[in-house]
């Protein structure tokens, strides 16, 4: 058990990649507080599933884009379980569409959730982690930050900003023993990527050298590593986990 008795907070934890991370952290012995916005049923079923497997996880409802809510949730989690050591900023949304037709609301909600949510929880926890002189922040980015498709200006901008933010925050917190890294997933089989997967069909697998879509657990394993003592000397990095997608090779 690599995360035994540590307290972790995972945003966007009820579905997709976040759900995979919550499960993997709990299996490694962490107490996992996870945030969900609307998927109450999925959140409750996840807590039950983890409990049945002998782990401990608890769902907290909240909107990551709201700074006050982030502060409040951190306070409540710490009141219940004590100091948090691991933060995973995973909550993210897409509002794909060509830029010329993009509504300001579609731009704003993506930036406020993906980048703003990351800011809010880092802001709520950074000084606490710094004071503990121990802590791990893991931001979930995307290969779309560097290799993008039409229709994702908002999403790509939010993820590119997360990468830069990750490096900048890593520099500020390193002296206090807190590491800050990002994971950039490729095509992962989740609800969020369903549309793109349906449109692109078999073409996607031709673009992925390892010849399969990623699973949430592929990302979760990287997150466990970054949260564990094994990654103590890694900070300010964006780790790409995409089956080789970003290498740009096309199978012939």
């Amino acid at each position: 058990m690599r995360l035994k008795d540590q307290v972790a907070l995972v945003t966007g934890g009820s579905r997709g990649i976040g759900r995979g991370i919550v499960k993997a952290f709990a299996a490694e012995g962490a107490k996992v507080a996870f945030i969900y916005k609307g998927s109450q049923q999925a959140a409750e079923s996840l807590a039950v599933e983890i409990s049945a497997a002998g782990g401990l996880a608890k769902a907290w409802q909240g909107d990551v884009a709201n700074h006050d809510e982030a502060m409040k949730i951190v306070e409540l989690v710490e009141a219940e379980w004590g100091s948090i050591q691991i933060l995973v900023n995973n909550a993210g949304v897409i509002r794909d569409g060509l830029f010329v037709a993009m509504k300001p609301e579609e731009w704003n909600v993506v930036l406020q959730t993906n980048l703003g949510g990351t800011f809010n929880f880092c802001h709520a926890l950074a000084m606490k982690l710094a004071r503990q002189r121990k802590g791990r922040i893991i931001n979930i980015s995307s290969v779309a930050a560097e290799h993008t498709n039409p229709g994702q200006t908002n999403y790509a901008a939010s993820k590119g900003a997360i990468n830069s933010f990750t490096r900048a925050l890593a520099v500020e917190l390193a002296g206090r023993g807190v590491t800050v890294n990002a994971i950039a997933p490729g095509f992962i089989e989740t609800d969020m990527s369903e549309n793109v997967r349906n449109k692109a069909g078999d073409l996607i697998k031709k673009m992925i050298p390892l010849k399969r879509l990623g699973q949430p657990n592929d990302i979760a394993k990287a997150a466990v590593f970054l949260a564990s003592a094994d990654a103590a000397y890694i900070t300010g990095q964006v780790i790409t986990v995409d089956g080789g997608l970003s290498l740009g090779a096309v199978a012939v």
Binding site: M127, A130, E172
Partner: peptide, 11 residues
């Protein structure tokens, strides 16, 4: 002391 430490001291 580093920059973040000065803030911590103030708090």
């Amino acid at each position: 002391a580093e920059s973040i430490d000065f803030l911590d001291i103030v708090f």
